[in-house]
């Protein structure tokens, strides 16, 4: 699984850079190395810029921050949006207090979703003041409604399944149904979406930084978006393409890695593909217990067309 390997690699590198930068990063963020605008070479893999700073070092030093921001913002949105979405989706009986709360959550969510999130984040940053943390907060504020919407939809589809009703008929309390049956069955799409979302958050953050509302570059804490913005304005891109390409490529690789991981997770977690690994029992048991052994062929509506290429085909009849 390529995406998984790539993401692991990126995370390990980020960890090393954060803990012991000198292992992978030869120069400090604002350390002058001598030559200016030197093209990529063994000494300077991504060349140097007009102040003779090593671009490779800056790109690497930005990795923990950018990765952390991507994961952190997505995770914060996941927690906030996830909890609200679960509650809004599960306790939505009209006429009750919880029902009104559910409606309110959804209205607030709709209001947030009706703004372009980038513009909203910029506006919030303006209000809070320019700093990396404030940008992160601003993005989180615009981000959680997407999770509310996603989780609520999943919860609505799961909560009407017969096994939820069966649990209710057994006397299980509502809170326990939510945790035991509903939450467990909505985690899969959630994990996939979260993984894919990390890349999107990263791009959004870089965009805000590129506009110049986040952090200053060059500075003690480099960041890919602001690097691109600085290099694009400080030197002609046609003469020194590596300056812009290096941080750009870093964003690109990171986002692609998480996309691949998300797609891979989707395949692994999808029950339709998982069914292919179904165990089957041999030898055939005697008559009365005979229904047990698995016939992977059994689904209710036998339509291989509907299953798509990922599904286990049902070579059998319908009905």
């Amino acid at each position: 699984m390529f995406g998984f390997l790539l993401v692991s690699l990126i995370c390990i590198v980020a960890l090393i850079v954060a803990v012991a930068p000198h292992v992978l990063v030869p120069y400090g963020p604002t350390q002058e190395t001598g030559p200016i605008y030197s093209p990529p070479s063994w000494a300077h893999p991504f060349g140097t810029d007009g102040l003779s700073f090593d671009v490779y070092s800056n790109v690497m030093l930005a990795l923990p921050l950018d990765l952390g921001l991507g994961i952190g913002i997505a995770a914060a949105s996941l927690v906030v949006g996830g909890v609200l979405g679960l509650l809004a989706g599960f306790y939505d009986r009209p006429g009750t207090l919880a029902g009104y709360a559910s409606v309110s959550i959804m209205r607030v969510t709709d209001i947030f979703l009706s703004f372009p999130s980038l513009i909203l984040a910029l506006a919030i940053t303006r209000v809070l003041g320019i700093s990396i943390i404030n940008v992160a907060i601003a993005i989180t504020i615009t981000w959680w409604p997407y999770y509310v919407r996603l989780i609520r939809g999943e919860v609505l589809s799961v909560k009407h399944l017969p096994y939820v009703t069966a649990a209710r008929a057994a006397g299980v309390t509502e809170n326990r149904i939510l945790l035991r049956h509903v939450l467990r069955n909505v985690t899969e799409p959630l994990i996939v979406y979260f993984t894919l979302d990390i890349g999107t958050v990263l791009v959004t953050y870089s965009t805000i930084a590129y506009i110049g509302v986040a952090s200053k570059y060059p500075g003690p804490v480099p960041e890919w978006g602001s690097m691109m913005a600085y290099y694009q304005s400080s030197a002609p891109i046609s003469s020194y393409p590596w300056l812009v390409l290096a941080p750009g490529a870093a964003v690109f690789v990171t986002v692609i890695a998480f996309s691949l991981l998300g797609d891979g997770l989707r395949d692994i977690l999808d029950p339709r593909t998982r069914r292919a690994f179904v165990r089957s029992t041999t030898p055939e048991p005697p008559a009365e217990r005979a229904l047990l052994p698995v016939t992977p062929l059994e689904t209710s509506a036998g339509d291989p067309m509907a299953e798509g290429p990922l599904g286990t085909p049902d070579p059998g009849g319908g009905g």
Binding site: T295, E298, G302, M305, D314, P315, G316, G317, G318
Partner: peptide, 13 residues
């Protein structure tokens, strides 16, 4: 005629 999984739908398609 046949039970689920006997291949009748596959034949039809």
């Amino acid at each position: 005629v046949g039970e689920t999984g006997c291949g009748k739908s596959t034949l039809a398609k």
